[in-house]
Amino acid sequence: MGLRPLSAEPILVLSQLTKRWGRHMAVDAIDIQVERGSIFGLLGPNGSGKTTTLGMLLGVLQPSSGSYQWDLPGQPHEQRRHIGAILEHPCFYPYMTGSQNLELAATIKEAAPHRIDEVLHLVGLYERRHDKYRTYSLGMKQRLAIGAALLPDPEVLILDEPTNGLDPAGIVQIRNLIRDIGAMGKTIILASHLLDEVQRVCTDFMVLRRGQVLYVGSVQAALGDKDYVILDAPDRSGLITALQSLVPEADIQQMAEYVELRGRTPDLSQLNRLLHDQGVALSRLSRESGSLEQEFLAILDQGHHG
């Protein structure tokens, strides 16, 4: 684990970015860069500095020291018009309709008026566009915020817990939306507690704890050698004996309901054939991917002891 090599085309560079409130160090000298076109996950427990970091990048929190640089055209406020962002929770006027709120956002962002109906369709709120924002459910508010973020067809999307309050169908919809936007070459910075979500959509991620960077790198690099094989057979002791002789370099662990095989392993069909030749009939055989959750906990644990 370690810092990722400098990217050829970073869209965002943070240099010693720091935020402290009195004695409390919220963000401690972060030095990272985000590649253009990447989907960058921001992970960390509550109070780790994720939202504070994003707040500084969006100009609403003033850094105590250090700096950040967006590779986008114009002055900082003009650069923010190329960024669609949700910070913490949706912020709209409760007495205005969904459509009026988007009209205001479009005027601020100087987005084309026709985008309002487009994004309302995109986030599934077109039918409720004339209803007051205060009558929306939490999920609808979240979707309106995502709609507002997409108004200017942004080059960068910053989403802070975008699936908060969404039902399972909404979560899938937002996840697909993030993937679709990522596939269009846009850069996405995603802060989330949902590690599964980050693992599914992100290309890179950073782990923060008490304002300090514990890890930054690609998801692939973090999970690349973390695949493992799950096997089971009616004669489990026979299975373990056979495995010890067939793949002596692998790490074999007997779990409650199956046997786990980690390290260098043959492909599944070859393994099945070899075990069959040894007289072991398998009742279960599958290859599982490493989980970001395990990796995240390991990073936090390492940071805790480090």
Partner: peptide, 13 residues
């Protein structure tokens, strides 16, 4: 309503 903050995020100086 934190809409002042959102206005800054949306690109107002």
């Amino acid at each position: 309503n934190r809409t002042l903050r959102q206005s800054i995020i949306d690109g107002m100086s």
